[in-house]
Design a protein around this nucleic acid. Structure first.
Length: 606
RNA sequence: GCCCCCGUAGCUCAAUGGACAGAGCACCAGCCUUCUAAGCUGUUGGUUACAGGUUCGAAUCCUGUCGGGGGUACCA
């Protein structure tokens, strides 16, 4: 967005090299480190190395030749509009911008675009992001939260970067776990149900843990206990059979209890400001997936070994002629003819391709399922879907407890709701001591914005493939590199604007020329703001919300430093004061845009 | 056995072949009669697990070793 001057320089370098018979390697531009001034930099190492390799060496070492090239280019540069000076250092060409013109341009651009600042041009591609795949008949835990916040941030990024984006949720609403809860409910709790959406959701989890304990074989069982357990298990299996056969009563119970989970899920998604476009249910692709297996067998991709007592499989490595095991053998149908996770994912992929016409399909699923997706994508490719090449598994690590993995079966989980409630409680405690001027009616809402902001940032700011050992104090920290730190920058910017009486009517401020001597802090802030569009692009292209999380912190950090070092309202010079106010407004806008892409609210007070 | 991920400051993490490997936490020392101190400034902290290799240049790429985690035909 702000790189046209860079382009001009690049053209000049190319012209120079062409005229002097120098084979220029592709130029890579980056910021100038250690300067405190604003500009861009490129090096000539690659070009010098290419020369040496091509035998056109001048006999000089590569770094020396690179420096020589940089100096020659510098001499040929002449004066360029918007450039203050150019220098050749250690093989690099550093191009410094003429500050006031750039400052004005960046600030004007941000304020004109507002919430759209940084939005990419339409890419003409449709992306589906599938995330948030909790099992029903359980409660929503912190692990589910990780895929949700990761997926939502990614969806916001791809959408803002210019991809048409579809958000999809894929709850697991069938299987033995689901039946186990239904069995226990039916047997011990029928007709009961706690009041409250979350109480009811969590109650299902409790029932599940209880049922698992009853159905699990113990080492020191008496014969009576063994008989009891086996009887229970027989009842559960009978219920599964009935469900599978479409028994009306069991199906009705299933739908009713499923709805309890879904209600809780919808409430949480609402809290997180997540609006799903599509809901796929595992149960809905179960039956169609069987037809797919037949098709794959007919086309010679899958092998039906059921006549020999085996399963329906795809010998992927063998089909591909791979000597080493890589994709291995995938099972599509059990020997009893029932489907598996992979079977349903193939069916779902076809729906995504044929019904939703997606060009790219992103799966935000934990990394333990990497092989599953490698197999699925490879089978889709063998099946003839060109979109398979644009299927991408975005893996993420587990959130574990200090004592090990979470376990729904043991009831040892950290519920999202509990963490969210604790977050609000902690923020309220801090608020009462630090921010006395927030009206009582708004306290709770702002506390939620800050508490959830802290939680979201603690997840989004670590690389997705790392496991996170959950620590409440860390997840809800408000100091340092955290969500509230960034929100606080937004609050401070808002506060200045409020006191200046121009908030919300930035148009009243005439575009400033920034023709006074800018401080180092102002230059750095403007530079940081100007990097936002590139950060959006990178985060979206690489499917990495963390890139945006890093950017948002850097921007807030730069703003906080600016805030302390540079007076705004107290500036005597009218023109400089005006310019700084506009700069603060531009910073505020960019911080808000960054936070929005991370699914974090930007409060005006805290 | 084979495949995938990881190993960076005391701790949690960044750095996608480029200049001097950076943040936060913790520790220590300063800064609120002045735009919100959930903040700012400074100090301390490194043989990037180890050994080779490729390259003008490697935390980053390749090979091997060690260590951790995950997966590996009818769980998801």
């Amino acid at each position: 967005m702000f790189n046209d001057i860079q382009q001009t320089i690049e053209d000049k370098i190319k012209a120079f090299c062409a005229a002097n018979d120098i084979a220029l390697a592709p130029l890579k531009w980056s910021a100038i480190p250690f300067s405190g001034e604003w500009g861009v930099s490129t090096s000539f190492f690659q070009t010098a190395a290419d020369e040496a390799r091509a035998g056109k060496s001048t006999g000089k070492p590569v770094p020396q030749r690179a420096q020589e090239l940089a100096e020659q280019v510098k001499l040929q540069m002449g004066s360029v509009e918007g450039i203050s000076h150019v220098e050749a250092v250690k093989g690099y060409l550093n191009v410094y911008f003429e500050t006031s013109a750039y400052a004005r341009r960046v600030v004007d651009t941000v304020l004109a675009a507002g919430a759209d600042f940084g939005r990419g041009a339409a890419k003409g591609e449709r992306v589906m992001v599938e995330y948030c795949q909790p099992n029903t008949h359980h409660s929503f835990h912190i692990g589910h939260y990780r895929t949700t916040i990761l997926g939502e941030s990614l969806a916001r990024l791809t959408q803002f970067a210019g991809f048409e984006t579809i958000r999809a949720s894929y709850p697991g609403d069938l299987g033995l776990g689901v039946i186990t809860v239904m069995w226990a409910y039916n047997k011990f709790y029928k007709g009961q149900e706690p009041a409250g959406v979350h109480e009811r959701g969590q109650w299902l989890l409790k029932i599940y843990a209880e049922a698992t304990a009853l159905l699990e074989k113990k080492d020191d069982e008496t014969p009576e206990q063994t008989a009891q357990r086996e009887a229970y298990d027989a009842e559960r299996r009978e219920m599964y059979r009935k469900w599978d056969a479409g028994d009306a009563e069991v199906r009705a119970l299933w739908l009713e209890t499923r709805e309890w989970s879904l209600e809780e899920m919808r409430d949480i998604l609402n809290t997180l400001d997540v609006k799903m476009d599509v809901w796929f249910y595992e149960s809905e692709v179960d039956e169609p997936s069987k037809g797919i297996v037949e098709e794959l067998v007919a086309r010679g991709i899958a092998t039906d070994e059921r006549p020999q007592g085996g399963a329906v499989i795809v010998k992927i490595d063998e089909k591909l002629g791979l000597a080493k095991e890589k994709y291995r053998t995938a099972v599509l149908l059990r020997s009893d003819g029932t489907t598996l996770y992979l079977t349903k994912d193939l069916a779902l992929a076809r729906v995504k391709f044929e019904q939703y016409h997606v060009d790219r399909s992103i799966y935000v699923v934990d990394f333990r399922q990497s092989l599953h997706f490698q197999q699925a994508f490879k089978i889709l490719e063998m099946w003839g879907f060109p979109q398979a090449a644009k299927c991408y598994h975005l893996p993420y690590g587990y959130i574990t407890l200090p004592e090990g993995a979470m376990s729904a079966r043991k009831g040892r989980v950290i519920l999202f709701k509990d963490v969210a409630d604790e977050a609000v409680k902690r923020v309220l405690a801090v608020e009462s001591e630090k921010s006395g001027d927030i009206p009582a009616s708004e306290r709770e809402a702002i506390a939620a914005q800050i508490g959830l902001g802290a939680l979201a940032y603690s997840i989004l700011s670590v690389d997705n493939n790392k496991d996170i050992v959950f620590d409440m104090n860390e997840a809800l920290s408000f100091d340092g590199r955290t969500g509230p730190y960034i929100q606080n920058a937004h609050v401070r910017a808002t506060s200045i604007l409020k006191k200046s009486k121009v908030e919300g009517q930035m148009s009243d401020l005439r575009p400033s020329t920034f023709d006074y001597e800018l401080t180092k802090h102002e230059v750095e802030l403007i530079e940081q703001i100007s990097k936002f569009p590139a950060a959006v692009e990178q985060a979206a292209n690489e499917y990495r919300p963390m890139v945006m999380a890093m950017y948002a912190y850097d921007l807030a950090n730069t703003f906080h430093s600016f805030y302390h070092a540079v007076p705004v309202l107290q500036t005597d010079d009218e023109s400089a004061r005006n310019a700084r106010l506009r700069l603060v407004a531009a910073a505020r806008q960019t911080i808000a845009n960054s936070l929005r892409l991370l699914d974090i609210q930007a409060p005006d007070v805290m």
